[in-house]
Amino acid sequence: MIATLLKRDLAKFFPFAGSGAALPLIFFLAVAMLYPFAVGPDANLLGRTGGGVVWIAALLAAILPLDGLVARDIEHGVFDQLKLRGVAEEMSMAVRLLAHWLSFGPPLILATFPAAALLQLEVETLHLLLLGLLAGTPGLAAIGLIIAALTASLRAGAALSGLLLIPLALPILIFGAGALARSDDATLGFVAAISLLLVAIAPFAAGAAIRAAREG
């Protein structure tokens, strides 16, 4: 039953599977492509600032999939029908979190290779970026899911969720991008710790938000 649900969620959200599911990936690459045009082809400058730009691109790309992440299924009564089949909101949100991360984290990490080439990043920076994104994207996905569930019943929910994600994602950005300057394992460990905490909270917070939306 849970495997069936995960399969459905992945089919909806995986890049090039559902409608518009590849947009975050294209957006991420577009930022990496535009940045050298904006600041000029100075390899030194690009190498120094490029890592931070990749982090900002990843954070902004995390906003794009939030629109259809939860709201549409609430509107169509999918969570009601799942509840009647004994799948609690927490469980459907845990599955949704996994599907959301799988369709957003790994593709973004893969896209970091072409992005690093466009920004002329050094191998050491690329290495830290990959590890940082691996540690940080589950946290970004978890924040995104909580926000998407909380704003699902609001009319301007999609626009609001983008604004809400930015401040909440700040710790991940600070430590993730900070690791590039300090090249310190402890900093990345901190990113992973924040992510783990968020991943543990997200299904419960998002599940409660869906129940609250029903009562409203």
Partner: peptide, 24 residues
Amino acid sequence: LLDERISLDPDLPLGKALAFWEQM
């Protein structure tokens, strides 16, 4: 429960949308 919200994915062909719940 049968209500106004049919919980079938609007983007999928009817057969596939129904197949998800059949599997569930």
